[in-house]
């Protein structure tokens, strides 16, 4: 499944990095602890978090993540969005809170047999 397909399926809004909507999703990871994501997220994962500051992009880029999903309608800070544009890694926003959007993401990926 591509990031574009995921945004459609889950009704996510695209905040930045739309150039990367064709990126292929291989899995998902949910955490707000940056070292946890650094240590355990995998290449191609969609990362669900409530953090909106620029370091989330540093992590997404270093770990080759497919996209970031912000919860509860959060949007990236300005410099975070700029970095997302530059890297071509999309930042998406979900209306739902972490538990719910993670569940929906899991269901969507499971249906595609990616997790």
């Amino acid at each position: 499944m591509t990031v574009q397909e995921l945004t459609e399926r889950l009704g996510l809004s695209v905040c930045s990095g739309s150039e990367g909507l064709g990126r292929e999703i291989k899995g998902g990871y949910t955490s707000d602890l940056l070292s946890d994501v650094m240590g355990h997220a995998k290449e191609g994962d969609v990362w669900v978090t409530l953090q909106t500051h620029k370091n989330i992009m540093a992590i997404a880029s270093l770990k080759d993540l497919a996209a970031i999903v912000l919860v509860k309608g959060r949007v990236p800070e300005e410099d975070t969005a700029a970095e997302s544009e530059e890297e071509g890694i999309p930042i998406l926003s979900a209306k739902e809170e972490t538990f719910e959007i993670t569940g929906r993401l899991y269901e969507a990926l499971k249906a595609e047999q990616t997790v």
């Binding site: 940056l34 650094m38 370091n55």
Partner: peptide
């Protein structure tokens, strides 16, 4: 609050 300070940095460095 920014998500740093989980005390996993040095363990991550050892593992990697």
């Amino acid at each position: 609050e920014m998500g740093f300070g989980a005390g996993m940095g040095l363990p991550n460095m050892r593992k990697n």
